[in-house]
Write a protein that binds this DNA or RNA. Structure first.
Lengths: 230, 230
DNA sequence: TCAAAAGTGTTCGCTATACACCCATGG
DNA sequence: CCATGGGTGTATAGCGAACACTTTTGA
């Protein structure tokens, strides 16, 4: 009895945060998974997550999880759903407030953590622990919707990127194909890109323009009621 | 000690569901609020809500709250955010999974409940209990976003409605004004409305066409990747 | 007779879309 | 010499936006 030192009149669920961490490798969307070292679901892959501390908000908890897994403190992070099926954890009643984060894979520090972490392309994710398959589906849907309202894609790209990279990113997220010329025109006319002076020589020796995201311009346009249409 | 019969090794927060119930009176969006009878915030208005039972999901809990307040079992209901600030309830740590529901005001049974419930136009909502002001803001934003992806507006209208009613609803939700002819054309060309044989005589003795929402057609269009643009 | 609200069609401009050629490189 | 991939411009069709008049009724 000694170790059960928190007492309540009514039963309380456990509350955790899980963090779906999205990255982009230039061709496809990936998620960062960790392998469970203990039961239940020992050996299965799952999203990083953990119990919410009593003095932190869910957002702070999710940021803590993200930091522990990637070393990143300032990544884009967004709550998308709370999962509350009474049977979703076989041990006890656990409610998860789930977030997704958008990070640059190159900035993620290799897991010095003992836990094995690994990037999986979205279409090669194995069957996950708990209800994390469902969490991934919901996260993907939420990301697709969010990108219609905010230019969050840039969080997944390097500071400077080529138009082709940007196009591939949108194609990977929305699972569609765009015409190169039309995509480029549309993006440039939105007014949220700055074409840089410098260019880059691609691996195939082609020279390509570099762009960056013009956050100031975006803020101005946002005030005027601005939406991205795809 | 007798009454504190649930014991945990670590502290657990309380979890509640709150339900923002939207209605439409033909001119403006309204929300259903209940007056708190006990402290804290006694006498202030708040959204219906309550503790989650240990054997129900948050969705079931929100539906239960909705039923207790309105007598409705089948209304559209959608989770939009979990609120988790450690200080949001002065008594103890409470996490709220918040839903919004869309109902037809005419179908809501008058509160036989002892609790006073009342419809407030969105722009006349008083300062609310807890962080419910923030919850309302988030609910409104979520509703505005959702209506871009799904024709949920029809949940707020009677089975049969006039084009003007539909237009006023969209104007109320999105806080914009549309041209009558353009709105009508656009809606009709979407293919999700059926014009009925019957007409209705409005209070001002004008005769107006009636429409209803063609759910079957919408399902077909949805398969083909259909979005509402406004 | 005046204001309010419903019905109705056309024009214009913009944007989405489809589409083709040039050039440099590597194999 | 051929495939790959980047850069660039045009033509068309469809949609969004602006817009005016008639009719009926109640005040």
């Amino acid at each position: 009895m000694e170790e059960f030192k928190y007492h309540y009149k009514y039963p309380h669920p456990s509350v955790t945060t899980d963090c779906v961490i999205f990255g982009f490798d230039g061709a496809c969307l990936k998620v960062l998974l960790v392998e469970r070292g203990i039961n239940p679901y020992k050996g299965r892959w799952a999203f990083p997550g953990g119990f919410l501390k009593m003095d932190e908000s869910a957002l702070q908890g999710a940021k803590r999880e993200l930091f522990e897994e990637t070393g990143l403190k300032d990544a884009y992070i967004h709550q998308f759903h709370a999962f509350s099926d009474p049977q979703r954890d076989p041990r006890e009643r656990v409610i998860t407030i789930a977030y997704y984060a958008l990070v640059r894979i190159s900035e993620v520090k290799a897991g010095d953590d003992a836990a094995k972490a690994q990037w999986f392309p979205l279409d090669k994710v194995p069957s996950l622990a708990f209800d994390h398959d469902q969490i991934l589906r919901e996260a993907t849907i939420a990301l697709r919707r969010q990108i219609h309202f905010e230019p969050i894609g840039f969080e997944l790209l390097p500071e400077k990127f080529t138009m082709t990279q940007l196009q591939h990113l949108y194609e990977a997220i929305l699972d569609v194909k765009f015409d190169r010329r039309n995509f480029s025109n549309k993006m440039l006319h939105l007014g949220i890109l700055t074409q840089l002076e410098e260019t880059v020589i691609l691996p195939n020796k082609k020279e390509a323009f570099l762009y960056n995201f013009n956050a100031e311009n975006y803020q101005v346009l946002k005030q005027k009621g601005f939406r991205l249409e795809f």
